[in-house]
């Protein structure tokens, strides 16, 4: 309950939301919170433990011996460390270039009406929604002919295919919610369209641009099929390392690589969500400028973080 009992109150507190407050419900709530927290904290903790366990044979509940060889391999700039570097560079490039391309596209989409809007939005979402493996196999020979297959540039271009799809839709939602009166005001104060874009629109949307770069980064950061097919085994990213270690049964290294793959995005998320989660203000309050994208446009987050 959000309201503490007020001393001396003579009337029962009405229940402003649809749910009641019976003791049974409280128990269910407690169980749900516990489950959610475990599901959030458990996997990273588990991976951390696995990544340092020398031997953890069935049926021991905890590792019976510890080793840091997986981590020292990371520190000693083994293949894992190189993969981290490759993934970070690919992710940042995809995020920044994706936003530069997708922000104007999203704005153009948001201004469409009627049938054109539906067709254009569907077209923009298509690369993000088509099965990534099919996108990869459908494009591979074209990349080979362009001599891009197996090169980092080719892999960035391949990652940009779904990333620009995701980000176009993200910015479509952002610009659908954007109050264009701000731009109008700037125009009537004498700014050119270009000046409005650079001096008003983009600065106003700085938080959303940050989120966009993060989203583009994530699309590339977890990508497997496009790296696998277009990279042709010559571009080693962290997700491919995870795949390889799991399939080879190298539990310790798989766990270390997976943990690396989690840590950076979770730190990013926690930084970003400090703003987002505070929300759920009373319905009557106007949404803050940094509030999540509008309800019906779940764009703020198409999540396929991998694939």
């Amino acid at each position: 309950m959000t309201h503490a009992p007020v001393p001396g109150r003579t009337t029962a507190a009405p229940i402003p939301v649809a749910t009641g407050a019976s003791p049974g419900w409280r128990g269910v709530r407690l169980a749900m919170v516990t489950l959610l927290v475990i599901s959030a904290v458990g996997p990273p903790a588990l991976l951390a433990m696995l990544s340092a366990s020398q031997s953890w044979f069935y049926p021991a509940l905890l590792p019976t011996g510890w080793t840091a060889d997986a981590w020292s391999a990371v520190v000693r700039r083994g293949p894992l460390a190189r993969a981290v570097g490759t993934s970070v560079v690919l992710g940042l490039t995809t995020g920044v270039v994706g936003c530069v391309l997708a922000a104007p596209i999203g704005r153009a989409l948001a201004r469409l009406h009627g049938a054109a809007r539906h067709v254009a939005v569907a077209a923009a979402v298509l690369p993000a929604a088509a099965p990534p493996i099919a996108v990869a196999t459908g494009l591979q020979l074209t990349f080979v002919r362009a001599q891009l297959a197996g090169t980092p540039v080719g892999v960035v271009l391949a990652h940009l295919v779904p990333a620009v799809g995701v980000l176009s839709f993200f910015f479509f939602a952002v610009f659908t919610a954007y109050d264009t009166r701000l731009d109008d005001e700037a125009r009537s104060l004498g700014a050119s369209p270009r000046q409005v874009w650079l001096r008003v629109t983009l600065p106003t949307l700085r938080p959303q641009l940050g989120a966009g770069v993060g989203l583009g980064f994530l699309v590339s950061w977890g990508q497997v099929p496009l790296t696998l097919v277009i990279g042709g085994g010559r571009v080693h990213t962290l997700p491919l390392e995870v795949m390889g270690y799991v399939q080879a049964g190298e539990t310790r290294f798989a766990a270390a690589a997976a943990l690396l793959l989690i840590l950076l995005p979770i730190v990013l998320l926690l930084v970003a969500s400090a703003r987002l989660v505070r929300g759920s203000a009373p319905a009557s309050a106007p949404a803050p400028a940094s509030a999540p994208a509008p309800a019906s446009a779940p764009a703020s987050a198409p999540t396929r973080v991998s694939a």
Partner: peptide
């Protein structure tokens, strides 16, 4: 609860599967 529910958001599919 809301924060905890959001945490797996940036976890890549490959990590979830692994």
């Amino acid at each position: 609860a809301r924060i905890a529910a959001l945490v797996p958001f940036p976890i890549p599919y490959v990590v979830a599967a692994a």
